[in-house]
Write a protein that binds this DNA or RNA. Structure first.
Lengths: 132, 132
DNA sequence: CTTGCCTTTGACGCATGGGTCAAGGGTTAG
DNA sequence: CTAACCCTTGACCCATGCGTCAAAGGCAAG
């Protein structure tokens, strides 16, 4: 499988695959004699995991910090909480990202409040709407 | 008053003033015979307003869209709601930014929920904390 | 062999709000 | 006059996740 097909199979582009490789998210695949990248099903699966985690708000740096244990964050790897030892997620990456998300949400919410105070008192229901 | 003093008076840097000028937030000031920018108190005041509005989450583009009526968003310009006509804020810039903030907050909150669902069920209190 | 699509690497673009450096000229105190 | 600091414009830098273009070579079908 060359890069175009692998990318299509994973629902993305060749550019993205090379980008992941350059940034240490994807191990360098073997090459054909002429230097073209050759991927297998495992690679495609890993790319899917990468995309899922990125879409969850993790950054490239987060996933790079995970190293090869990226899979530990995967969908079916572990149930959310398996008992008093299952919390040992790789590097606490997800926890750090959660904290960063919390900080950003708090910052934006404060901003919204201050801006709203100037514009007028309409539409204060952000927090409520965010609870959906 | 040359750029360095004006910048200091407004609590920022010469670079920022030139940046604001290039981006249409600050009118081009008159120049000395040798081309150096000359600022007055009005300019300094305007820079302060610009910085306040930027710190409130408005973008440079927002303020540019406001044109010269930037002052209408200023602290003491109008009381928040002066009656059935006072809502006519310049270009609805603030309202649009408010909506954008809401959208971003909602997006991040959803992200947080999804990420938290993977990591475990701890620390769900973002919305609550954001209510402060 | 040729055509046409696929792949390679490298480099620039985007949006944000300036920071920082460079090369050259102004200004002012001593 | 000169040192020392200020100002001028222009251009590259930061982080993010790739998109896009470019030049050049690979690969399979006709």
């Amino acid at each position: 499988m060359r890069i175009g097909d692998a990318a299509a199979a994973a629902g993305t582009t060749p550019r993205a695959l090379r980008f992941y490789e350059q940034n240490g998210l994807l191990p360098p695949p073997r090459r054909t004699a002429t230097g073209q990248r050759e991927y297998g099903h495992r690679d495609v699966a890993r790319v899917r995991v990468i995309r899922t985690l990125l879409s969850l708000g993790l950054t490239v740096a987060d996933l790079r910090d995970c190293g090869d244990r990226l899979d530990l964050l995967e969908d079916d790897a572990l149930p959310p909480y398996g008992g008093p030892g299952a919390c040992s997620r790789p590097s606490g990456v997800a926890e750090r990202r959660l904290a960063a998300l919390d900080a950003e949400i708090t910052r934006l919410t404060r901003l919204r409040e201050r801006l709203a105070a100037r514009v007028g008192a309409q539409a204060q229901g952000v927090s409520d709407r965010s609870r959906s």
